[in-house]
Design a protein around this nucleic acid. Structure first.
Lengths: 329, 329
DNA sequence: GGTCGCAATGTAAACGATTACATTTTCTTC
DNA sequence: GAAGAAAATGTAATCGTTTACATTGCGACC
């Protein structure tokens, strides 16, 4: 493996000059620059990243800690983050916390060990609550989840508002006994719950919400359970794509028809929501944009650590489909 | 930030001893080991990974280059790889090649630069073809995709056989005019195509296959297109989950009923395949197992570079659902 | 008790880059 | 053409570990 001194020798210059050429500095003659680049090519020289990072104390790597990689929301966010990062010559270390605060803490430690330039995180409720107590040695951008009082850059949906609009839509379609099932571990679930409750209260209706672990199986279980209890609900809302999936499975098991026997709606415009007859009404999130906004925010903060805290709030779009339509009288 | 010499000072030993304790070597007295560990804790010392990697020339990082992170198959593989890797104190760099050979080459170079201990790769056809020409400076394990003659460790499904079984099942159910839609860029698609062709030929039926870019949209487009041409097919097979999704969308658009008007089957037991009425028949892959086998294979090779090439072939399971059932006469 | 052997520990040289500082070259300007 | 400034280049220290090699300590054995 060629080293920088081999390149220097080959080009007839000093190692410092080679380093400068590779760093893209200006204080080099065009002629020598060219000789160095030729030598680099001739020897197929590639700088040793470990050495570079040790000496320069820079890393050009960012950490991305997602709550659940199986959730298509996060895979799409990851895609965006990765795209933009590599366009800017940064590496990404992707970690999957599986909605587990311990894993999350572990990965945050790991990021510190790796001396990353910054981290994008979708925190569980516990980590979010502890955020003010800890002091991380890197810039942190939250994505998908934050509280009104969190002191960190963040990119989120207008969760409460979107849930309010979704619930209002259902009420306007004549549904009344609306049950809300949400993920217990995420701030998102709670904010959407707020929106749901507000909409219900404003129309003089009683709220009924169930917290579950944020997996399809748990949501399915909870829905089954609820169906055994009278009075049966009109309508279910799932606070994210995985939960909506679980609810749908449970309703399909007992052969309930949408929207005649039960109405259904939720968050995340996943491909299958269009396929299930007669189409499931959802709030669509601008997923790629969320990821893109997050990494751009992070890079801005890395470049300028002193800048004031920013929060980007994106709007969800209501896609009304058959599952929420007014049922025949 | 505490350094190793601070720890040494605090514990009253030399830096070498500290390093030895942290490396878990045996040639240290219990008493000194304890003093060192106390000092580490007291100073909250964390080794500088860049320095360690530079000096030791080890990295304990593996690269995972998946073909398409949006394909749930690969997200589940990633989960498995990550789980096992971190259990073994290894880091994972996850890269998404988007089925693009150029991106793939870029990431492979990146892995070389990062000096990773090994790489898990799901190659496009082009990269697979070029594999013998290149010589990578790290162990390589292929996952999901390989040829009979590829000279590398690999973990794959019994693709041809599974497709054969699936096609035979459809034929036995009375379907005849079966169209196979597959991803052009992956070896998997071609192997499944072989199995399909064999089954058709054995029953004296004509094959009809269409290659498409491996996305749901392209599969949807191709299906729409095919539906405009007479004679209309009995049945569609999608060579993976994304393509199956695209086909399903196209068939739903024109309101065709399963299995009365058209039958449908494919690969990947994704959650939504159970939800679409009356359930879509699929070959289920042991996804987590595939990822687990891949990283275990890789770790074995890292530990023992000289061992002979291994190929792990896992069996797909046919889940017969309503979409492939015999239609009423 | 001296010597040998081995275990425990210490000293200092790597690892391969970047970069502060020193030096040389080139360009202005008179 | 000389002086001085600025640009280009070179020399060598440095980043924080690991590890080869040197040294010390200690018990066993004769």
């Amino acid at each position: 493996m060629a080293q920088i001194k081999d390149v220097a020798l080959h080009a007839g210059v000093s190692v410092a000059t080679v380093s400068r050429v590779l760093a893209g500095q200006t204080a080099v003659t065009d002629a020598t620059r060219q000789r160095v680049l030729d030598a680099v090519k001739a020897l197929d020289y590639r700088p040793d990243l470990a050495a570079r990072r040790l000496r320069s104390r820079r890393n050009d790597t960012i950490g991305l800690i997602v709550a659940d990689i199986r959730n298509p929301f996060f895979t799409e966010v990851s895609r965006a983050v990765e795209d933009i990062a590599y366009q800017n010559r940064m590496r990404v270390i992707l970690c999957n916390a599986d909605e587990n605060p311990d894993k999350e803490a572990l990965y945050l430690d790991l990021m510190r060990d790796e001396n990353v330039s910054g981290v994008i995180l979708s925190p569980t409720l516990r980590t979010l609550a502890r955020l003010p107590l800890r002091d991380y040695p890197f810039p942190l951008v939250l994505v998908d989840r934050c509280n009104p009082d969190t002191v960190a850059d963040a990119v989120v949906l207008d969760n409460s508002d979107a849930a309010y609009r979704l619930t209002t839509h259902l009420i306007e379609q004549g549904h009344r006994r609306i049950v809300f099932i949400y993920g217990a571990t995420s701030a998102t679930g709670h904010q959407r719950l707020d929106g749901y409750r507000n909409a219900m209260a404003r129309h003089g209706l009683d709220s009924e919400a169930h917290a579950v672990p944020a997996t399809a199986d748990d949501a399915c279980q909870a829905t089954r359970q609820r169906l055994t209890v009278q009075p049966a609900p009109d309508t279910f809302i799932g606070s994210n794509g995985l939960i909506l999936l679980g609810i749908t499975e449970a309703l399909r098991e007992v052969q309930l028809r949408f929207p005649e026997q039960v109405a259904l709606a939720g968050f995340d415009n996943l491909p299958w929501t269009r396929l299930v007859e007669p189409g499931i009404t959802v709030i669509a999130q601008p997923v790629y944009d969320i990821g893109q906004a997050a990494i751009e925010l992070l890079m801005q903060r890395i470049a300028n650590p002193g800048q004031s805290i920013r929060r980007v709030v994106l709007r969800g779009e209501l896609l009304a489909r058959g599952s929420s339509m007014r049922r025949a009288a």
